[in-house]
Design a binder for these strands. Structure first.
Length: 298
DNA sequence: CAGTGTCAAGGTGGA
DNA sequence: TCCACCTTGACACTG
């Protein structure tokens, strides 16, 4: 079991997702920003290792405008050494990373131009992980997409478009249940059509459920991962107390997290904590998981 | 230099 | 048909 947090570290005073306005794009600006972002990513991973936080989601903003036509700078070549070094660090310390493109990636869109932009964005994400020479256990997670008034047709469109993707994307792509459209059951059905592994989001499941209990959901989603996909990944969060339904908690609730570990034992999973205070909660969770006996150092 | 409007990209649901 | 919302930081312009 590895435990991690997404994209941002609030302790070390740098961001690996610095960006700038499209209007001020230049190759020089891109290279200067990417250089800083990579230095910061390296710093975050070193912080994480020290804290025994072995799982991390790399921000989609690592390379600003990475999939935009304006971005013609050959960043993979210019920064090949830096990417390679970060990848080696990850592998040598038995760490794991993932990425999560945001809402604009919609494989099941009806508009071919939206699909085109989505594929370009997925290619960019795969290129980042490839530049680090990471194997297929470094995953890219997306949602099913829109409903467009016809769930069945939209799910079929997902399966059809998925089968057309490049191998560099296919080997990394996993699909996650969301909080308003497609449930775990929907994702499992898509898996049956496509073989895509299903990443289970515990919090989305509580908001948008399809009947399964947590233990059953973890087991069924976990069974969709092949051995070379690695340990199944889970997104974990809880409701912000008093917040609007679906809002992520500010900090980890230790009692609820302990309960979750008990419910899912002894299945091995890698847990991404989608909690607002990021590494602070991850530190608490690592302590709890160690006490629970599930967390093992490499 | 502080304050603040705005930022590549989409879908949904209410008015 | 149009707009707010989702969700979030921070860029970059204005005064």
């Amino acid at each position: 079991m590895k435990i991690g947090y997404p994209c941002i570290n609030r302790s070390i005073g740098c961001s690996s997702g610095r960006t700038f306005r499209l209007a001020s794009y230049s190759c020089e600006r891109l290279e200067a920003t990417l250089n800083e972002n990579l230095r910061c990513l390296d710093a975050i991973l070193r912080f994480n290792l020290e804290a025994e936080i072995l799982f991390f989601r790399i921000t989609s903003d690592l390379v600003p405008f990475g999939s935009h036509p304006i971005c013609t700078a050959p960043w993979q070549e210019t920064f090949a050494g830096e990417f390679s070094d970060i990848g080696r660090f990850i592998r040598e310390h038995n760490m794991r990373v993932s990425m999560h493109p945001d809402q604009f990636v919609i494989i099941n869109a009806k508009d071919p131009e939206i699909i085109g932009r989505s594929v370009a964005e997925l290619r960019y994400h795969a290129a980042v992980l490839d530049a680090m020479h990471l194997d297929r256990t470094a995953k890219i997670q997306i949602h099913v997409g829109g409903v467009y008034g016809d769930r069945e047709a939209s799910m079929e469109r997902f399966s059809r478009e998925y089968s057309r993707l490049d191998e560099s994307i296919l080997r990394r792509l996993v699909v996650e249940n969301d909080d308003s459209r497609y449930t775990l059951t929907d994702c499992l059905r898509i898996h049956e059509e496509t073989d895509i592994p299903v990443l289970f989001d515990v919090f989305h499941h509580t908001v948008n459920h399809s009947g399964e209990g947590v233990a059953e959901a973890v087991a069924r989603s976990g069974a969709t991962w092949r051995p070379d996909d690695g340990i199944p990944m889970i997104d974990y969060s809880t409701q912000m107390p008093g917040g609007r339904k679906g809002r992520h908690a500010e900090s980890l609730d230790p009692a609820l997290f302990s309960q979750f570990l008990s419910q899912t034992a002894p299945t091995d999973i890698d847990i991404m904590l989608e909690i607002k205070d990021k590494e602070k909660s991850a530190l608490v969770a690592v302590g709890i998981a160690r006490a629970d006996g599930r967390f093992r150092l490499p």
